[in-house]
Write a protein that binds this DNA or RNA. Structure first.
Ligand SMILES: [Zn+2]
Ligand SMILES: [Zn+2]
Ligand SMILES: [Zn+2]
Ligand SMILES: [Zn+2]
Lengths: 144, 144
DNA sequence: ATGCGTCATGTAATAACGTAACACCGATCG
DNA sequence: CGATCGGTGTTACGTTATTACATGACGCAT
């Protein structure tokens, strides 16, 4: 079903359903993480009525590597590093500004390796890693 | 500063109030993370009645480095590495088994350094770091 | 075409997690 | 003494997430 042959370039997205597309666009248009209920509020006019509609879409988007959940915030952002899902380069990490709410996604291969290595040594079957830094971004610091 | 007028030099613990002590003992006695409401349920007989009593105690325990919050679980554990709070050895990380719920706390200096270094380079004033690994522990894997 | 499995959807109700606001008490200190 | 401070108790409320059930759309085998 999924164009097994599209080895082409910019066809990164698996086909999204209407709800998934709405949610992803909402995340893309936001300049800070949104809670599921924030998203819901912004999509009332598009017909969404219940939290579950948003949570279901988010679940798929996250599986597809198009969005992330920020555990320390109970909120969601779109992925800023298309491919962080794919590459073994390292686990995605997030720096979250407590003042302005902006989030910076990055990866550090060394960090990913060290954690994977610890897991390997312990016989721990690693499935998913959460790394979140809380603090104040440069912009907010210099702004006073 | 630290060491003003120690009544009894006996303990490392800052003096805990009754509620704080109850909550800490409950966490110590558990073999898996507990939610605030789990804790509350276990302390009904000791007179606790409202979530806020638990959350307030947890707040102090976490400040004191005696407990940790697991963001990906909305639950709490007691600190297994007395001093992870103090030492610059690295940020505490947690491996959480999805099957049995057991949590393993550890630190990796290199990981802490890399993240701190990223923050420094970005001018990000790092206040707090969350690292949580989800997966299946060795015990559960071999058990089937 | 009929029926079947599967996946997305819609809806209501409820569970789980967390906080604001206010009153009270006891200890400490000028 | 009165003032302040931190911990406490209680009510009420706000936010986040899930369970349960019903429906609709599609591909596919009978
Ligand atoms: Zn990403
Ligand atoms: Zn900022
Ligand atoms: Zn610790
Ligand atoms: Zn296990």
């Amino acid at each position: 079903m999924a164009h097994s042959h599209d080895h082409h370039h910019h066809e990164a997205r698996p086909d999204l359903t209407r709800n998934q597309d709405l949610v992803l666009r909402t995340l893309n248009g936001a300049d800070a993480p949104l809670s599921a209920y924030d998203i819901l509020d912004r999509l009332r006019d598009d017909g969404l009525r219940a939290p579950l509609q948003v949570y279901r879409a988010l679940e798929r988007l996250i599986e597809a590597g198009l969005a992330h959940r920020l555990e320390s915030l109970n909120a969601f952002v779109c992925c800023a590093d298309a491919g962080c899902h794919e590459k073994a380069s390292g686990t995605a990490a997030f720096a979250i500004c407590s003042k302005c709410g902006r989030v910076d996604e990055f990866t550090d291969a060394e960090v990913g390796e060290r954690l994977a290595s610890w897991a390997g040594a312990q016989g721990f079957a690693l499935e998913r890693t959460t790394i979140e830094l809380r603090g104040v971004c440069q912009g907010c610091r210099t702004a006073g």
